[in-house]
């Protein structure tokens, strides 16, 4: 249910685009005046891991399409590079103001809770800090299916190898559960709206959504992925026969006017064939009569000759 509300929020958010029509996209930030009082506002949210995490989720949803994964303005449309020194020279308050207000093609995000905007500011600021992927820790995630007591549950376990070479559980790791769709970018969240973090055993368990539709046999591909700024992305996909079978009843062998010749409606096939044949048989009969006229003429000429 909460997932739906989320969608609605998103839907209302992006509405706020203002199309400028011109190519005033690559803008000099000095030209976007920010009131002094707005620029002077202090960032109340510290750039903690949680804040950056939240900012990243928001950025991926709302900003990535245009500003690009790395914020360099290389997304679907030409947009501001968020990693330049000029951009970073601005105060947090100024960045917050611009996200809040929007201008031209840049939509206004004034409907987002203020705290989330500050998370976003924190994350945007962190974009320019090049993170070496070697610095990221590695963790593995695995899925367990449990349908005892008729209650279907999914459990993900996150583990890492510590300095001593031992495999130990990772606590407090955010785990996302989803099912794969046909599209490589399409992952349908199984449980949305709330975040799930691993407990001290490195596991997190969620109830399964029984309404999901799988393939013809009901096979679903469940994906569990971890999301943490200190860890390299990792995910695991497991097939499970927990989905509803794909109805596949859309395409039928029913005859229809819009289908190809193999599926001609019978009434049409019969009436067309019968009338076509009928007409041409009659024409054939008339041709036969003409031939008879000719034969009769030959006979008559023979008679006259002899």
């Amino acid at each position: 249910m909460k997932m739906k509300r989320n969608i609605l929020t998103v839907a209302t958010l992006v509405v706020a685009f203002i199309f400028s029509g011109s190519s005033a996209v690559a803008q000099d930030f000095a030209l976007w005046p920010v009131p002094d009082e707005a620029a002077a506002v202090e960032n109340p949210v510290a750039p903690t891991k949680e804040s950056l995490q939240s900012g990243k989720s928001l950025f991926d949803l709302q900003c990535k399409a245009c500003h690009g994964e790395s914020g360099k303005g290389d997304g679907l449309i030409k947009s501001a590079d968020l990693t330049t020194p000029e951009f970073l020279a601005q105060t947090d308050g100024a960045i917050h103001y611009k996200i809040h207000q929007g201008r031209g093609v840049m939509p206004s995000f004034s409907t987002l809770p203020d705290e989330q905007l500050w998370d976003l500011v924190n994350y945007v600021r962190s974009l320019s800090m090049v993170r070496d992927s070697a610095d990221l820790k590695d963790a593995t995630v695995s899925i367990y299916f449990n349908d005892a007591d008729g209650q279907r549950e999914l459990t993900a376990k996150v583990e890492e190898t510590n300095a001593e070479g031992q495999v130990v559980p990772v606590a407090g790791m955010k785990v996302n559960f989803a099912v794969k769709t046909h599209f490589e970018v399409g992952f349908l969240p199984i449980v949305a709206a709330t975040d799930h973090y691993t407990n001290d055993n490195g596991t997190v368990t969620v109830a399964f959504d029984d309404t999901l539709i799988g393939d013809a046999k009901g096979v679903l591909h469940v994906v569990a992925s971890i999301e943490d700024m200190d860890y390299a992305p990792a995910q695991v996909t497991e097939a499970v026969e927990w989905g509803k079978p794909n109805p596949e009843d859309y395409w039928t062998d029913r005859r229809a006017l819009w289908k190809n010749n193999e599926y001609v409606p019978l009434w049409l096939l019969i009436s067309f064939t019968v009338s076509a044949l009928g007409i041409w048989l009659i024409i054939g009969y008339v041709a036969l009569l003409a031939r008879k006229i000719k034969l009769e003429g030959d006979r008559y000429e023979n008679d006259v000759n002899t």
Binding site: I293, E296, G297, Y300, E301
Partner: peptide, 10 residues
Amino acid sequence: SLGWHGTKEQ
């Protein structure tokens, strides 16, 4: 003319 001679049969 198909050998037309205007016979009754024709």
